[in-house]
Design a protein around this nucleic acid. Sequence first.
DNA 1: TCAATAGGGTACGTAGGCGTTCCTTAAAGT
DNA 2: ACTTTAAGGAACGCCTACGTACCCTATTGA
Lengths: 202, 202
Amino acid sequence: MTKRERRRGSALEDAILDAAWAELIETGYGRLTMESVAQRAATSRTVLYRRWPSLADLAVAAVRHNVRKTPVEIPDTGGLRGDLIDILLQFAKRGAGTGLVLIAQMRDYFAETGTTPADLRSRLAVGEQKWMDIILERGIARGEIDAARVTPRITALPADLLRNELLMTLRPVPRDVVIEIVDQIFLPLVSKEVATALSGRE
Amino acid sequence: MTKRERRRGSALEDAILDAAWAELIETGYGRLTMESVAQRAATSRTVLYRRWPSLADLAVAAVRHNVRKTPVEIPDTGGLRGDLIDILLQFAKRGAGTGLVLIAQMRDYFAETGTTPADLRSRLAVGEQKWMDIILERGIARGEIDAARVTPRITALPADLLRNELLMTLRPVPRDVVIEIVDQIFLPLVSKEVATALSGRE
DNA sequence: TCAATAGGGTACGTAGGCGTTCCTTAAAGT
DNA sequence: ACTTTAAGGAACGCCTACGTACCCTATTGA
């Protein structure tokens, strides 16, 4: 750092967490190292260890940071389908699913903490369920959704399928896949009248 | 091996692949090592390297081996629901999904080979789609399924959801989750008459 | 029986990464 | 201005794992 200003406090932390996220995306957790993150953040490992006791902790913090940096905006497209597509695209962009897939392999971390990736998802306050609930309540109020069909598993379904897509392709989920998930799977499951849902298609 | 007979050929290979699978299940790919597999198989790394150029290759071979060792039996419960539950339980037991989740993190392998976990699933000839096709054709013939509703994505859905469950819990999928996936999601999606499907519930 | 194959074992050198200590010095606080 | 804090950097020791070479010898094949 002889050539630039020293960063301190949250500026430095943000830079580190951004670097960690970028490294995580690039290499996956298996090849993530403290040194690679430190280099990318133009800092030293000592600085990382002052804040996070382990690589796993840093990775979790990076995912959380990235998620919080990317706020979700409640869409209002006037219809359930549009809202769903919009929110799922936001989820995809936000990277929470990506982060989870990438850090799901931290076996030691989960063993030590007695937790699972599912627990971590809750703890990261990823909030997918919250937004889904809002969208679904709207759909119910508009008479588009049959409330009796909405179960926790069905509410979680779109995000689950996004995650699976990420796991299997190692790439961002394309828009047409999101649309397919909504049109072929989700809407038919929750719609009040199948005919109504189908007529809403492009 | 001063205390036991020397194994050769396929006997030795099977032992190695079984050991590799067991190690993979226990530690995940991130902590899998040639040495740990060799030790578990009571052999030496040299022997492993004579057959597989890298750890990734060994891991892929282990998954394939385990899958092939566990044949799938076409169920005949007389009804779509029973068949689906049975086959999904077989998938779960077979470990293909587990294996895929565990080796999905082999970023270098996928980068080098220009492939994805989805490709690997096909290459491993896991066969989930084949069995699903058979079950679904049966359901169509029996009038339980609306053929127009069967898309590749919907056909793949149960296995996708099993995989997601594995990823998030790091544990074998319990029977009640399988039943939930069938009853809440898959059957409502493909059944010809919703009322018919619901009345088939336990 | 002899030759070829390969299993089992050991040792080596190398690389990479971790966790830590310690020093210099920029930046913030008093 | 002086003191405290912590960033940046370098170095150290240790450990792990890899890939390989090489040797002995059991097992199979000719």
